[in-house]
Design a protein around this nucleic acid. Structure first.
Length: 426
RNA sequence: GGAGAGGUGGCUGAGUGGUCGAAAGCGCUCCCCUGCUAAGGGAGUAAGGGUUAAAAGCCCUUCGAGGGUUCGAAUCCCUCCCUCUCCGCCA
């Protein structure tokens, strides 16, 4: 959510910032709603103050044994008037809140202008795409040749966009996750957390997936409904919900491994082949809760932590800064890490690292106590994949493939693989 | 799933219809005292919102959530959620 004070005091500034996203914020309409809200609220509060005062008076009179009948008569109509005014105020406030929940975050000044992903700007490239002296296969073919990646069974059990992994491939997948968790906890100072995979509406509103992206979520039939998490960002960031974190425990850095569930509505026909885009995948997620002045730097640091994983795996990647037309709804600034996939001869997203500023914090009332003011203030939230495990597995398979279809195990994963150095075709 | 007890400020915990946003304690902040340390004394200390250029002040809201009764609800009634204890069941 955007600061209401800013929306009121500088609606034009907000509008022009959001225009960079191609989002049209009707400042005029907002201002007139706001004005209505203000006068209604003053009315309601005046009525309430009146009521409170007379209630107090009645109490006093009664205590002194006086006749309260005339006093009662004088407040008779107050209740009805208040009820009516309050009802319209509440309706209006709901309307305003809905509008505010639908506004995307303001963009950081660093975010380059652009309309879609083709306008994202490359920040750096790391590593050289390996030159194969044969035509590199993609992970689907490699998985088939190994006999360890099975989409047919998955389709029978669950439908499209699911996969079954067998034996050493399943273990390699797990090894990647273990390696990432260990690196982030042992070397990067993150605290590992285990969190629920099913959450309620409020949690998703807090991180910004709701109300706008309902269609992307898997939802249960319960009343009220539950949702399967689309990313660990949701339960982990919500750890700060309605809390005031002491300055001494800032920054708070969490890492969690969870499955992620996405219904991928609207993406029909995109990446239908293979394991790139699934309804269910594993991810190691980094989340930081920081004081506002530290969030710019924290984004660089967090992105670096994700990059470390790619570097240790010796996977060529590039880092791009998302342009104004491609940044996510709630993000203030985002870097994507794209890993080189020889099977596609392309860089593909494997991590997305974002600074949300106070956008999520405001939605979930996540605060810290500023030692300078002694007051609770909104903190800043960041998150990033470190990394998406399914895609990391694809990247390892394709980059470490041999001509005979076997796949070498990256050096850093061998200890997690019981010393296995190569997954060979049976 | 059954029975019972609870949900109050950063924390512990009192409060059963009015002067209660709420005793007391802990914690925290500031001051005093003590040549260090330990201890002691005093004052302050919830959040959100409105009004304001801003502040002060004033006002509104909030005692798990939502409804209801009442001139007036932390307190009475209803529904729901959550926590704890015991039993059952289960991984």
């Amino acid at each position: 959510m955007i600061d209401q004070k800013l929306l009121r005091s500088a609606p034009q500034d907000v509008a022009s910032n959001l225009e960079r996203r191609n989002f049209a914020f009707d400042a005029q309409a907002y201002a007139s709603l706001e004005e209505l809200r203000k006068s209604l609220q003053v009315d309601v509060e005046t009525l309430r103050a009146e009521r409170n005062a007379s209630a107090k008076q009645i109490g006093k009179a009664k205590a002194q044994g006086e006749d309260i009948a005339p006093l009662l008569a004088s407040v008779e109509k107050l209740g009805v008037k208040l009820e009516g005014a309050d009802a319209s105020l509440q309706k209006l406030q709901e309307q305003l809140r809905e509008l505010e929940l639908g506004l995307p975050n303001l963009l950081h000044e660093d975010v380059p202008a652009g309309s879609d992903e083709s306008d994202n700007e490359e920040v750096l490239r790391w590593g050289e795409p390996h030159q194969f002296d044969f035509k590199p296969a993609d992970h689907v073919e490699l998985g088939a040749r190994l006999g360890l990646l099975d989409f047919d069974s998955a389709a029978k059990i669950s439908g499209s966009r699911f996969a079954v992994m067998h034996g050493p491939l399943a273990r390699l997948h797990r090894a990647l996750i273990q390696f990432m968790l260990d690196t982030h906890t042992d070397e990067h100072g993150y605290q590992e957390v285990y969190v629920p995979y099913i959450v309620k509406t409020e949690a998703l509103i807090g991180t910004g997936q709701l109300p706008k992206f309902e269609d992307d979520q898997f939802k249960t039939n319960d009343d009220p409904p539950f949702y399967l998490i689309p990313t660990a960002e949701v339960p982990v960031t919500n750890l700060a919900r309605e809390r005031i974190i002491e300055a001494a425990s800032m920054p708070t850095k969490y890492v969690a491994h969870t499955p992620c569930f996405r219904s991928e509505a609207g993406s029909h026909g995109r990446d239908t082949r293979g394991m790139i885009r699934q309804h269910q995948f594993e991810k190691v997620e980094l989340v930081q809760l920081v004081e506002p002045s530290a969030s710019d730097h924290a984004l660089e640091e967090l992105t670096g932590h994700a990059e470390t994983i790619l570097q240790r795996l010796n996977l060529p990647y590039r880092k791009v800064i998302l342009c104004s037309g491609d940044v996510g709804f709630g993000s203030h600034k985002t870097y994507d890490l794209e890993v080189w996939l020889p099977g596609q001869q392309a860089y593909r997203e494997i991590s997305s690292c974002s600074n949300y500023g106070d956008f999520q914090a405001r939605r979930m009332q996540a605060r810290w106590r500023n030692p300078d003011t002694g007051k609770p203030e909104l903190l800043h939230t960041l998150n990033g994949s470190g990394l998406a495990a399914g895609r990391a597995l694809i990247a390892v398979m394709e980059n470490y493939q041999q001509e005979d279809g076997s796949v070498d195990v990256p050096q850093v994963l061998r200890s997690y693989m019981g010393g296995v150095e190569r997954i060979a075709v049976a």
